[in-house]
Design a protein around this nucleic acid. Structure first.
Lengths: 250, 250
DNA sequence: ATGCAGATGTGATAAATATCACAAATAAAT
DNA sequence: ATTTATTTGTGATATTTATCACATCTGCAT
């Protein structure tokens, strides 16, 4: 049984008040360029219902959006920016589960599972997010089956992707894992052969589940072998085929 | 892009024919004692639709129900029995993802994700399963939002549980993992302090992601310390608190 | 009972990776 | 620009776990 701190209760109450009093501060969902695939199939009336029970907000890089263990009163939709999903391990270290790109809901499985957030979320870039009242969201799913179906599809895909990454990870040795992470950023997150890591070496290591030192060593070895370019947090893939081989062989 | 072997296509065609020609062979869904939580909220007419497009079947221990990579034409619901969900690794070894208990659907995320089964399923005991036409299932979700909502809840819970087990695993050392697996069987699968493992030491090792030899060694050490009783495949927990401590400490 | 095949247990060794203790390089603050 | 703090890189070592090579056991069929 989870008990809530005063801080948590106040936080939830604040959001609820904010949404109730101020509404969506002029934003109109049906004109929103960042609307989700699922919400795109809602009709005008339904979107208006969302609008009247949601609120947009912005976050600075580094800010925490949700803490694991907290109670859910609002769904969070990421309109723009990049977010890390993670769990804390024994107070100090953390395990990063995935990098969430814009146009995604945060923590839907937690919401439908037991309403307690299982993972934490923090902004890796400045972000714009929408808080949507959980009751409105649930009633839309019940009333509009196609909306529910779309949500089901998106959570299922997410589930498969994450599980797949974890499965791969648990089978591969450290070289394969580092290769995977680089390819993950290049292909899925940034869609570019050259990119800036949005975080430190420690966090890079937390993403692939190895020690910082080991991760560093492998990155430097890849650089020495001309597989990647590496300068600070900037990575460029120089030998894509070789990197993919390393990823596959484990 | 996934291509299908003739064998796979024939298999799918066979099931479709079977269901179309024979129907549910006398079984009536609204009288079914093994109905899923989600299907329990369907009305008479909707259940009749399911009935006319489904078929029950039985499987012997050891038989494979679904192969990873195969195409999905029917949803599979486990009425009774125990099933392992696994993936093959490099032809020889395998990684067991979870043990599926009765009254569960198999592979829903694969179904909604991309219609290709990502995992394999094999019977650990004699099983009864229902094949349900995927189009009927999907149209029920779209037409009856509450049904979709229930499916969403159950896949979300499943997702959280599995992910949680994997997260724990990737953080824990071998003693913690073995303790976890024993507690998993005792608390979740069999709900008893004493139980028979439904498979070999190799499969036990595949479940926790370690080598057979290492798993064996830890089991024997637990026995030597009086934490568990161990005779062949029968395990009894003797010192629950200690076992839970080992599980938590990792 | 006898023999056989698969499953299980055991020791020795090798491989992979974490940890520790610093040094060097960057970034941030004054 | 200088100091301070944080991040990153590096070598030596310790730990953990896999692998290999067999021995032993168990259940099953003859």
């Amino acid at each position: 049984m989870h008990l809530y701190t005063l801080e948590e209760v106040n936080f939830l109450t604040d959001i609820t008040k904010m949404v109730a009093e101020i509404g969506n501060s002029g934003n109109v969902c049906h004109d929103c360029k960042d609307i989700s695939c699922a919400a795109a199939i809602l009709n005008y009336k339904e979107l208006d219902q969302v609008r009247n029970n949601s609120r947009e907000s912005t976050l600075k890089k580094g800010e925490v959006i949700l803490h694991e263990g907290s109670l859910t009163s609002h769904i969070i939709y990421l309109k723009s920016g990049l977010v890390k999903e993670y769990v804390k391990i024994g107070g100090e270290s953390e395990q990063i589960l995935q990098i969430v790109k814009d146009h995604s809901y945060l923590g839907l499985p937690s919401l439908f599972g037991d309403r307690i957030n299982h993972y934490s979320y923090a902004a890796l870039e400045d972000c714009r997010i929408c808080y949507i009242d959980i009751n409105v969201f649930n009633s839309l799913i019940r009333k509009n089956g196609s909306f529910g179906y779309e949500i089901l599809v998106s959570t299922s895909r997410d589930n498969l992707n994450n599980f797949n990454r974890f499965l791969n990870r648990s089978q591969k040795k450290i070289y394969g894992r580092v290769a995977d992470a680089i390819l993950y950023f290049a292909k899925i997150i940034y869609e570019s052969q050259k990119f800036d890591l949005p975080f430190s070496r420690q966090e890079f290591a937390d993403l692939i589940g190895v020690s910082r030192e080991s991760a560093t060593r492998v990155l430097i070895k890849f650089k020495a072998e001309g597989i990647i370019g590496l300068k600070g947090r900037t990575i460029s893939i120089e030998k894509m085929e070789l990197l993919e081989q390393i990823s596959q062989r484990g």
